[in-house]
């Protein structure tokens, strides 16, 4: 503060100029890469009027794709919530060898291309894969059915909740839990009454991100879905199919659903951040937290 008062007027002017320039560049960038595409989605979706828009969304295959997307998310998100909480707890509250390695493993899905993730599951569970023949003989269908799509989605969205909770739990330390335990609470009770309330907003935040990604995932799901109409298509896959069929209104109407989901997620996310500023801090933490090991 005191330095700014000492600096000559021209320098302040220069700083203001460069600040405005930077803001301008950032704004242009945002408009070009975020606002315009979003606008394009909605204008294309409504290009032939509201009736065409709602007809496209009430199409049998579109409804099936919505059901499939919701089903996949309804299974993968809770799975990852459980896993993410367990992993974060382990990493934040205990010291053990190979912790850094575990953290890297948790981040793996971020680094692997989604198409490769899909292919991995085909290699393992496909009819000519490692487990596929045995599973087939016993009547279990994994690839090209719901379980395969859940597996692929779960793999892709694996890190979201864990990554959200780890820095938060680390920042909080284990003092509260130790106090609870020393007062005679059981481990389970400590978890429900102390640990969970401490991280619930971070968890919600992670669930939001995880859910948005689970519903929007394309690459991995595309490889394992088999594209059976009305059965194994999710919304993103349905969008591609409609687009390739020259059905632009249908494609963009469906895409606008996904865009709305994204906007809703964003809105809830910023609401959470405003109510709980500590989340924003926690998000900047992962690198630091990892360096500490």
């Amino acid at each position: 503060m005191s330095r700014r008062e000492q600096s000559p007027g021209s320098d302040t002017l220069g700083r203001a100029l460069s600040r405005n320039l930077l803001i301008g560049i950032a704004l242009c960038y945002l408009v070009l890469f975020l606002v315009l595409p979003l606008l394009a989605v909605f204008t294309q979706a409504l290009a032939k009027g509201l009736v065409a828009f709602s007809t496209a969304l009430r199409d049998v295959d579109a409804l099936a794709a919505m059901r499939m997307t919701l089903t996949v998310a309804a299974i993968s998100v809770p799975l990852n919530t459980l896993f993410g909480t367990a992993a974060a707890w382990l990493v934040a509250k205990y010291e053990f060898r190979g912790k850094g390695f575990l953290l890297t493993l948790i981040d793996l899905p971020f680094a692997v291309s989604p198409v490769i993730s899909g292919l991995i599951f085909v290699l393992v569970f496909g009819a000519r894969g490692w487990l596929g023949p045995w599973l087939g003989e016993h009547g279990y269908k994994v690839i090209f059915a719901l379980p395969g799509m859940v597996l692929a989605t779960t793999f892709i969205t694996f890190p979201f909740i864990a990554r959200e909770l780890i820095p938060l739990m680390q920042a909080q330390g284990r003092d509260d839990e130790e106090a609870a335990l020393s007062l005679g609470a059981s481990g389970w009770r400590t978890f429900w009454m102390v640990t969970l309330p401490n991280v619930r907003w971070g968890m919600l935040y992670g669930i939001l991100l995880c859910n948005a990604r689970a519903m929007g995932e394309f690459g991995a799901v595309s490889v394992v879905s088999g594209h059976i109409r009305g059965e194994t298509n999710t919304l993103p896959l349905h969008v591609e199919i409609l687009y390739n069929e020259y059905n632009f209104v249908g494609a963009f109407a469906t895409a606008s659903l996904l865009a709305l989901l994204a906007l809703l997620t964003l809105g809830l996310k910023s609401l959470l951040e405003r109510r709980h500023p500590e989340l924003r801090g926690a998000r900047a933490e992962p690198g630091k937290a990892r360096l500490a090991h």
Binding site: I75, P78, L79, L82, F83, T85, A86, W89, L90, K93, Y140, P147, V150, E177, E178, L181, S186, G187, W188, T190, F191
Partner: peptide, 25 residues
């Protein structure tokens, strides 16, 4: 404190399994 914690971890793992079987059935 550790045994207590591991018991809760076991419970969590159990829940995971229950969810998985629910899905497959």
């Amino acid at each position: 404190m550790n045994p207590l914690h591991s018991r809760s971890t076991l419970l969590l793992a159990g829940l995971c399994l229950a969810l998985l079987t629910a899905c497959s059935s």
